[in-house]
Amino acid sequence: MTERFSGNVLRPIDGPEAKRPTMGEIGLNNFAPYLMNRVIARWNASLADDLKALDITTAKMRALAILSITPSVTINELSVFAVTEQSTMSRTLDSLEDQGFIRRQPRPDDMRVRDVTITAEGRAAFESLWPTMYDDFLKMFQGIDEEEYRTFVAVLHRILQNIRLHEV
């Protein structure tokens, strides 16, 4: 795709009559949400292929990754962190529990809330996945130095703050 737009993409809009650039003027290669979708779709596809060889799904990997660094979360919190629908997360946790990778226990102060924790078997399973995840991560950021990476992550945090729906 050729670059067509030389104006400011992030124009301040002062009222409903203000001139906004068109998608055609900006172009897909200058439209950050499009690029983010492409990057994440490619990351998810590559990782899913690599995880398939380890006989684990992306949803299970996300749950185990989160649980490997936090002592306990609720299903709702885990769904938010994993960017997964709660119904999908519930089915994923059923499977992980059947495999002995997680434990769900009611909270003593509120029996309606279930805390999810990782078991030693789940931790070992995640530790076997981690090298694959980290290697895919390094491929994605090949040629990007540490300072660029830190700037990129800082910008992502600012964007997330702008669009945040959940406190986590």
Rank of each mutant, 00 (worst) to 15 (best):
M1Q: 13
T2W: 11
T2P: 08
E3I: 13
R4A: 13
F5D: 07
L10I: 12
I13P: 02
D14W: 11
G15I: 07
G15W: 03
A18N: 04
R20L: 12
P21R: 05
G24L: 12
I26P: 06
L28P: 04
I40C: 07
N44F: 03
L47Q: 02
D49V: 02
L54T: 09
I56C: 03
T57Q: 09
T58L: 15
A59G: 03
M61T: 06
R62G: 05
A65K: 02
I69E: 15
I69A: 15
T70L: 15
T74W: 10
T74L: 12
I75R: 05
S79L: 14
A82V: 02
T84E: 12
M89F: 06
S90D: 14
D94T: 12
S95E: 10
S95V: 04
L96K: 03
Q99I: 11
I102G: 05
P106T: 14
R107A: 08
D109K: 14
D109F: 15
D109L: 15
M111D: 13
M111N: 13
R112V: 09
V113D: 02
R114H: 04
R114T: 04
R114M: 13
I118E: 01
G122Q: 05
G122D: 03
F126D: 02
S128P: 06
L129S: 00
M133H: 00
D136T: 00
L138Y: 02
Q142C: 08
I144T: 11
E146N: 07
V153K: 10
V155F: 14
L156D: 08
H157N: 14
R158E: 08
L160N: 08
I163K: 00
L165Y: 00
V168C: 10
